[in-house]
Design a protein around this nucleic acid. Structure first.
Length: 793
RNA sequence: GCCCGGGUGGUGAAAUUGGUAGACACAACGGACUUAAAAUCCGUCGAGGCUUAACCCCUCGUACCGGUUCGAUUCCGGUCCCGGGCACCA
């Protein structure tokens, strides 16, 4: 049973294979691939239901997404909160993260504002622990992806504690370095922190600074790269352990959305705080010492932040304690004062899904002046998108359509307003795999029995750019659905293959309003220097220069996609597929180039010719057993070695390029094999059949056509993948490499049963070794069975 | 800035567990076939040196610097560059 969560192109794009036809291909070569494959699979009685297609932008799909939304909203798994976004002050719309560069908008020079808007959130943090621990079980996932997700979730063990001030008020902070608490010299709060707001009331300079902090992006990258700025609020808080008065600063690098919106600052042992303290002349107080190192406030040194080697100093009763002992002691003391405790924290934040867009599933909420936010009842689902929409490029078109948003409250029947935000399309892509199990189901999101049967997905394939967000959201959604009793198991995808990016150069021109107009590489002429580096580019249409951007992943937004259609038109879908598979392994990123497509095409023609030449004198059966010449034996050895390799390359390693290369080598060997005896022809038949079967997944049309030549009346789709014959892989003699001091100096053929002593003896008698020893003796001889001998001189 | 990858000939790449660096191709060059072209086939193809008796041999070479090892593209430490992600592209 195979569930195919993939596009139609998995079967090959419909193309008239004119080029292949001219290369003596038979007439039946030309067909509509999809129609042909459908018909073939149907005639084979494989029970394929071609109506089992899932589209994620249909009312029925929306119905169940909204159905789940209303349930989760009532349970509080989805909640509403104010959130800070990047805001385009000219268009009055939310800016996408990629439209923000260094805190500036995509218009040259336009400064981005932060703005608070109400948003719906999925409480993904509730599942943080499970999302993290579940990674260990995902053995079919690349290590790289598991590491990225673990870092993203970012579990940390720290201490949450409070500085006290005023009339028993508390300023809470979270730190993973409680051992440095005696080195605190100030506290930094976010611009939006209540304490900052209060201090700004009679401090115009501070109020202005807070306003300034509201400019610039909210992306993590913006905050990490921007200049760290701050201003003293004039307020002081009391250190919970020393009782000292500590100044409170507003810092533009502290975000209200993270943790408590306030951080303790230890300039001596945190590089960022150190820079900040130097800039504003704040005290730096050493509280950690590493033996043999000298502390100086002049410049930052790596060891200042070393929690492995550091022990407390200048810290009173904590002096001499290492990291974990100090944290334990300090947390205990804070707890005793009721001013803090150890706390596990996650970096992961809740998932904001509200979008001010037209595309996307409408959020099924009705805002009633008297009842508040009311979920749309099941019998009024789905809320569908209106179709007569004229987007004007600013804000959501739905918000300008009274016919969409005017409604009555389901609870009280009064006049109410429908939510006009739609959901992040990541929500749709988070459960489509589950819907594939039961596409026709009209009684629920999924049919339980079908979901039980099909899930989890055995092999999931997607771009590496989805390593964190999409794959984390999908895992989270699976757990939500599991907890609603909809799907089995804890994880949606058993095995994961992450493709590398196909990258291409980008080109653009700046328009009069400052926005960038991205130009497709196909419309551009690029001039290069003698080393092949681009020196300039012009638009083909007008010959005037365009700006060369970076080389980035192909995307609609950067208009740097390359259409393989030109290759398909000229060489056919099989050649296009073979060429792409041969270019590089799938998990590697690839700068697109069509150089080399000729080679793929030539290879297919050679396969075609080899089969045609072989079947011309009449079809024979494949080799079974009997006497073979040395050459025929050697060919069978290579054949079965290739089968074993290709099986492993396709099945386990997913390195299609090396699988193809192995077939090329085998075909080259076949070309040199000229014996025409009956036995030799049987071996040839066996080899050609294997090549066709091994290549068929990559070049299905060629495979289908050639198989019918090799085995008239039988169908390729009935065949199993070839199996390596262990008997053919037995060799009497093996070749060992001789190294002297690790350098290749010769080789040796020995019996496969030769023992180490014999091999060593033979090696020492080898002329290259004798020459290098020059009468002396070998210091050491390393024998690696089946591989090499290394003589150390 | 932080997290995750990557860097090997003119080019795409291979070397799967530390064991022959450059498989398999592209491009280029030389040759065969041909009236000619296309197609096809054969050969050369990392850099430098040596020897023309030998298509034999030697040195260097996997971004850069250093280390571990009999042996490092592979492991460790550091640096540079490129790509992906950084929560509103999806």
């Amino acid at each position: 049973n195979v569930l195919m969560p993939m596009g139609w192109d998995a079967f090959g794009l419909p193309a008239e294979n004119a080029a292949m036809k001219s290369a003596q291909a038979p007439a039946q070569w030309t067909y509509d691939n999809i129609a042909y494959m459908k018909q073939q699979l149907k005639s084979l009685g494989l029970g394929i239901d071609w109506s089992r297609e899932v589209k994620t932008c249909t009312p029925e799909y929306y119905r169940w997404e909204q159905w789940l939304f209303t349930r989760l909203f009532e349970k509080g798994v989805i909640y509403k909160k104010t959130s800070t976004v990047n805001w385009d002050p000219i268009d009055q719309t939310v800016l996408a993260n990629e439209q923000v560069i260094d805190g500036r908008g995509w218009r040259s020079g336009a400064v981005v504002e932060k703005r608070d808007i109400p948003m719906y959130f999925f409480r993904i943090t509730q599942y943080a622990e499970e999302l993290l621990s579940g990674l260990d079980q995902l053995e079919g996932w690349p290590e790289q992806v598991r590491t990225m997700q673990a870092n993203w979730i970012g579990k940390s063990f720290g201490v949450r504690f409070a500085f006290t001030h005023g009339n028993d008020e508390k300023l809470w902070v979270y730190t993973t370095r409680a051992d440095t608490i005696m080195g605190v010299t100030f506290v930094a709060v976010a611009a939006e922190h209540p304490l900052a707001t209060r201090a700004a009331q009679n401090n115009p300079a501070l109020a202005a600074f807070i306003e300034e902090c509201k400019q610039g992006g909210v992306a993590e990258a913006d905050i990490a790269t921007m200049e760290k700025k701050g201003m003293d609020t004039g307020l002081k808080v009391t250190h919970p352990l020393t009782g000292e008065q500590v100044p409170v600063w507003v810092g533009n690098y502290v975000l209200m959305g993270y943790g408590e919106g306030a951080v303790m600052a230890v300039p001596a042992h945190d590089e960022r705080d150190f820079g900040f303290a130097k800039k504003y002349n704040l005290p730096i107080k050493q509280s950690i010492q590493v033996a043999g190192e000298a502390f100086s406030t002049d410049a930052w040194a790596e060891w200042y932040g070393d929690k492995e080697r550091g022990v407390c100093i200048n810290s009173g009763k904590y002096d001499g304690l290492n990291y974990s002992a100090a944290v334990d002691a300090i947390a205990a003391d804070l707890k005793a004062k009721d001013l803090g405790d150890k706390q596990v924290q996650f970096r992961l934040r809740d998932w904001g899904i509200s979008r001010q867009r037209y595309w996307g599933c409408p959020i099924p909420i009705i805002h009633c002046p008297s009842c508040g936010d009311v979920a749309v009842p099941d019998d009024q689902l789905p809320v569908v998108l209106p179709e007569n929409v004229v987007p004007d490029g600013s804000g959501s078109p739905l918000a300008k359509m009274p016919e969409f948003y005017e409604c009555t409250c389901p609870k009280c029947g009064g006049k109410a307003k429908r939510e006009t935000d739609t959901m992040d399309t990541f929500v749709e892509s988070s459960w489509y795999y589950a819907r594939y199990s039961s596409p026709q189901c009209t009684t629920g999101m999924v049919d339980k029995a079908s979901a039980q049967h099909w899930l989890p997905v055995d092999q999931y394939i997607g771009g590496i750019e989805h390593a964190i967000l999409h794959l984390l959201y999908a895992r989270f959604f699976h757990k939500l659905m599991r907890d609603e009793g909809l799907v089995p198991g804890d994880e949606p995808f058993k095995n994961l293959l992450t493709q590398g990016m196909v990258i291409a150069p980008t080109f653009y021109r700046e328009e009069s309003n400052g926005k960038k107009l991205w130009i497709n590489p196909a419309e551009v002429d690029v001039a290069t220097d003698e080393r092949g580096r681009p020196t300039g580019a012009t638009l083909k249409a007008d010959g005037l220069p365009v700006v060369i951007g970076g080389t980035e992943k192909m995307s609609k937004s950067k208009n740097n996609g390359v259409d393989p259609q030109a290759i398909i038109d000229e060489y056919g879908a099989d050649t296009a597929r073979l060429f792409m598979m041969f270019a590089a392994p799938p998990d590697q990123s690839l700068e697109w180039s069509d150089a080399g497509v000729e080679g793929a095409y030539r290879f297919l023609r050679r396969v075609w010719k080899a089969v045609s030449d072989h079947v011309a004198p009449g079809v024979v059966a494949a080799y079974r057993e009997g006497e073979l010449s040395t050459a025929a034996k050697a060919l069978r050895f290579q054949l079965h070695q290739t089968i074993a390799k290709v099986d492993d390359d396709l099945g386990r390693r997913k390195t299609f390029n090396t699988a193809i290369a192995a077939n090329m080598e085998l075909l080259n060997a076949l070309g040199k094999f000229t014996e025409q005896t009956p036995a030799a022809r049987h071996v040839m038949q066996e080899a050609l059949e294997a090549i066709v079967l091994m290549l068929a997944p990559i070049v299905p049309h060629l495979g289908q056509a050639l198989w019918s030549e090799l085995r008239p009346g039988s169908d390729l789709l009935d065949q199993a993948f070839p199996k390596a014959d262990p008997a053919a892989l037995v060799q009497d003699e093996i070749e060992l490499v001789i190294q002297i001091n690790g350098k290749l100096r010769g080789s040796l053929r020995v019996s496969k049963d030769a023992d180490k002593a014999t091999i060593e003896q033979l090696a020492l008698a080898h002329e290259a070794v004798v020459k290098q020893l020059a009468g002396g003796t070998a210091k050491k001889v390393v024998v690696v069975p089946g591989r090499l001998i290394n003589v150390v001189v």
